[in-house]
Design a protein around this nucleic acid. Structure first.
Length: 186
DNA sequence: TCACTGATCGTCT
DNA sequence: GACGATCAGTGAG
C-alpha cells in the first residue's frame, strides 16, 4: 500500500472495505479525495490537534471526524508519521450486506446507500469510536483485496471553500455509485 | 438532474 | 462566536 496521499487515493479505488458487525458488510471503494500535508483545505493544515491527530499517524490508520454536527467522515491516514496527510473515502459500490446497510438507512434507494462520505459512514455504522484504528489489522473495519478499476478519472474536490480547484478527487469512471453531479464524473 | 437552503453541534479562534 | 472534507427536501427546467 503506497503512503503518498495521491498514490494512495488512486490505489484505494477498487479496494474492498469490510465492516464486521451483526452482519458482514463490504463494498468496493469507487471514489476518494487526497488531502496533502501542506494543503489549506486539509484539517492538518494548522497543525496537530486532539481531533486530527490520527492524520499525523503512519499511513493506513482511520481518521474519523464529525462534520456539520450530524455526519461522520472516514479517512485513511497517508504520508509518514508526523506528516498530516490523508485520503477521504467518498463512495462505495455495495458488495455484501446490502440489507444491513438498508436497515441503517431506512427509506433510502440502494444507489444512495453509500454514495457520499456521510452516507457511507451511516450505512456502515462508522462513528468516532473507529478513529485511530489500524485498517490493515482491525477485525471490525479493514481494507481487503483490490480489484483494479478499468479507468480512473480525476476532478476537483467537492464541498470545499479553500483550494477547491485542486484536482485531487479520484473515481472509477463509469461507476453508478459516485457522489457529486454527473458533470464531475466524466 | 441541477441549484439552492436549512439543520445542527463539535472544534477552533 | 463563526464555521464546516454533508445531506435531505424542495422547486424549476
Amino acid at each position: 500500500m503506497p503512503s503518498d496521499p495521491i498514490e494512495l487515493a488512486r490505489f484505494l479505488i477498487g479496494v474492498t472495505l469490510h465492516r464486521a458487525g451483526a452482519t458482514m458488510i463490504s463494498g468496493r471503494i469507487v471514489e476518494t479525495e487526497a488531502y496533502l500535508a501542506d494543503d489549506p483545505a486539509s484539517h492538518s493544515y494548522r497543525g496537530m490537534t486532539a481531533r486530527n491527530r490520527s492524520m499525523f499517524a503512519r499511513a493506513g490508520l482511520a481518521y474519523v471526524y464529525r462534520i456539520y454536527g450530524a455526519y461522520w467522515c472516514l479517512n485513511v491516514s497517508a504520508g509518514g508519521e508526523g506528516e498530516g496527510a490523508g485520503v477521504l473515502v467518498r463512495a462505495l459500490e455495495p458488495l455484501t450486506g446490502v440489507d444491513a446497510m438498508a436497515r441503517a438507512r431506512p427509506n433510502v434507494k440502494e444507489r444512495d446507500l453509500v454514495r457520499g462520505p456521510g452516507r457511507l459512514c451511516a450505512a456502515l455504522c462508522i462513528d468516532g469510536s473507529f478513529d485511530g484504528i489500524d485498517l490493515c489489522a482491525s477485525r471490525t473495519l479493514w481494507l481487503g483485496a483490490r480489484r483494479a478499476p478499468a479507468d480512473i478519472g480525476a476532478s476537483a474536490r467537492i464541498g470545499l471553500s479553500k483550494a477547491s480547484t485542486e484536482v485531487l478527487r479520484y473515481y472509477e469512471r463509469g461507476s453508478a455509485f459516485l457522489s457529486g453531479t454527473a458533470r464531475l464524473n466524466v
